[in-house]
Nucleic acid binder design. Structure first.
Lengths: 153, 153
DNA sequence: GCACTCCTGACCAAGGAGGTCAGGAAAGTC
DNA sequence: GACTTTCCTGACCTCCTTGGTCAGGAGTGC
């Protein structure tokens, strides 16, 4: 139930690309790495994965760099996380709907499905455009408004 | 963003203990392992962790076994998951409220906080009593009612 | 004293996390 | 055509986690 460095890096780099989308010019990996303080070579692997998933495009050579394949308001955080981490909320590496629970844990499946749905309700709602503008969807506002949400437990 | 085998096993074993709470007698590890099809020796390690976290009690010897330290309706899934997996929704192994995001990813912190809050809204609401009775809290019903929640993506 | 059951630490293989390194391949510039 | 720039790719590396197994020790009950 944790977020990997890779996923965090990927979203941050994508946010930089979203912000640079107006510029109409590719952004160098080096600039992304510096802006978000991410090891360059590691970031390049991540960007490659994002490219393979059709989230990012790239060109080599002088004047080369990376840019978003789609408008920033059409790319969700969920997509980016899935691209680098794989499916969200798998249990024992299999999707919860495929697991058979017996005996007294029969209803556990519904709980894991609910967990996944709740994750989706956040990650699939927030787009890169929301992220860079700071105008996050209302679901985020509701979840973060309580003081309680900001303390560890 | 996945649920480990350990967490899944822990919740299932705890569900068996919850169901057996009426019996007033300890349940052997072997019986738990068989009921939920969990490797016995692995399960024993898990039960030990639950014990150290004050969720379960145990006695050795003949007539020994495990039982819940508290009534089933006072133990949440969140507690069990934390006992075996550690804190929920950490990013790069640190709690989201401690991370400083700069530049265009400034608002990413709020997103991760929202992710954690949404997980909590499910995991802290469901108790072992809910799980074995099948009367899950309304939040689970709402999240699982859509057909969409049950399909992979 | 003995059977029973939990308790504990050591170990193990495979894979993932979080990188680094070295070189190749396209694109632009002179 | 040579050269520089920048992405692309695979190999490699260390440390840690996952998902276990094994062997023995220590309480408990009869």
């Amino acid at each position: 139930m944790r977020v990997s460095a890779k996923a965090d890096y990927a979203v941050r780099a994508a946010a930089e690309l979203a912000a640079a989308q107006a510029e109409e010019a590719p952004v160098k990996g080096e600039r992304l790495a510096e802006a978000q303080d991410i090891p360059l070579q590691f970031l390049e692997h991540i960007l490659l994965e994002l490219k393979h998933h059709g989230i990012v495009r790239a060109r080599r050579g002088a004047k080369g760099g990376y840019w978003l394949a789609r408008p920033a308001d059409e790319v969700t955080i969920a997509e980016i996380v899935r691209a680098v981490e794989g499916p969200i909320a798998h249990v024992q590496s299999t999707p919860p709907e495929d697991i058979e629970y017996r005996g007294n844990s029969e209803h556990l499946q519904a709980v894991w499905i609910a967990v996944r749905a709740s994750l989706r309700s956040v990650l699939e709602e927030v787009t890169l455009a929301d992220l860079v503008s700071g105008e996050l969807p209302s679901v985020v506002g509701e979840l973060t408004s309580s003081k309680d949400a900001w303390v560890a437990r």
